[in-house]
Design a protein around this nucleic acid. Sequence first.
DNA 1: TGACAAATAGAACGATCGTTCTATCTTGGC
DNA 2: GCCAAGATAGAACGATCGTTCTATTTGTCA
Lengths: 201, 201
Amino acid sequence: MSKGEQTRAAILERAFALAAAGGLSTLSIGRLADETGLSKSGLYAHFGSREALEVAIVEEASRQFVEAVWAPALKIPRGEPRLRAIFRHWLAWGQRPGGCFFVAASAEFDDRRGATRDALAREQKAWIGALAKATRLAVEAGHFRPDLDPGQFAFEAYSIMLGTHLFVRFLRTSDALDRTHAAFDALVLAARAPAPRRAAA
Amino acid sequence: MSKGEQTRAAILERAFALAAAGGLSTLSIGRLADETGLSKSGLYAHFGSREALEVAIVEEASRQFVEAVWAPALKIPRGEPRLRAIFRHWLAWGQRPGGCFFVAASAEFDDRRGATRDALAREQKAWIGALAKATRLAVEAGHFRPDLDPGQFAFEAYSIMLGTHLFVRFLRTSDALDRTHAAFDALVLAARAPAPRRAAA
DNA sequence: TGACAAATAGAACGATCGTTCTATCTTGGC
DNA sequence: GCCAAGATAGAACGATCGTTCTATTTGTCA
């Protein structure tokens, strides 16, 4: 790895940490220059524009997201256990400083246009698609009912994650995590293959 | 209403529209001055500081939110019908330009401190509390099971609203509204008083 | 090691930000 | 209709933004 490449990697790591903690648009070139010990123009030469820097940050975020959430979940047996693992790791990821980078960034960019928004939407759609696929595997494994709509399950699971984000980070409700787990358990319970006839609870 | 008061009201209406469409922090004094036809300092005299303007905008947003969502829902009979009305009107409110002001603003301010954040959190907690109360009334009316936790119901309903916001505004998934209604229907169904014994569907 | 390319620094740019000051204009009560 | 109080304008402030330019230093490879 050449000198330039490793400097670039170091910049990105710091830039992602700052962007995750304070939002993509609060990150300024000048501040990032200070934090990395480089000059503004020295830093600039690595990316060419603010927007290119933002896109690079989004890609760095995806890399770290896969590493923190997706990779460990893929080691868990497919079906409900893997889905639970995904949820658990995502929850941990979302408790980092600044919360989930993607949730924060989507709210920031939902009205804008440009390469940053495109990169964010692409990554997030991929992640939701993967969540739906993991749900489909749970159906195929017989853990979930055959007529379950994986896209609907993914929508609802993602919604719970968004609720967690708001209640934990913004409202700071003390029982937010309990509610999160209760909601996810209820979602999974409703998705399960119908239990053998018992008396209703 | 004195001259100053009515100018202030006009400023706030315009300011809220701009803040709702583009986010609270993208709204700048200079731009607002242009849009209202006033000078920056003329505008400034009405609020005293940027933060005071933001707080006033939050209060204006609450006023409009009550008018658009809460007031009409209170005319509907309490219980499940009213809950459905709240959800319906909230959904319409969230389809205004810029989406739901509160959802957007909470994401913007979750890392910050100050009067604006406090005002936002206060209003939003009040609204979630009201949602929980409406749920409790549905329990008391016998529409929902007696052991239902209204706070949990409110958490999950709010989560669905957040999911809608993301899927409609950011991801722009075509079936987002269908998924929203399906999710809310499932939530209500699970909250209902247990149906008379039938064969499982 | 010498030479060329890559990497970085430093200064300057125009724009915009929130804020403050002073001056002028308008309104409302007597 | 006068006159104080209120409302508004205009200019200027220091700071910071993203960006560009020209040097200068540093790394890399023949």
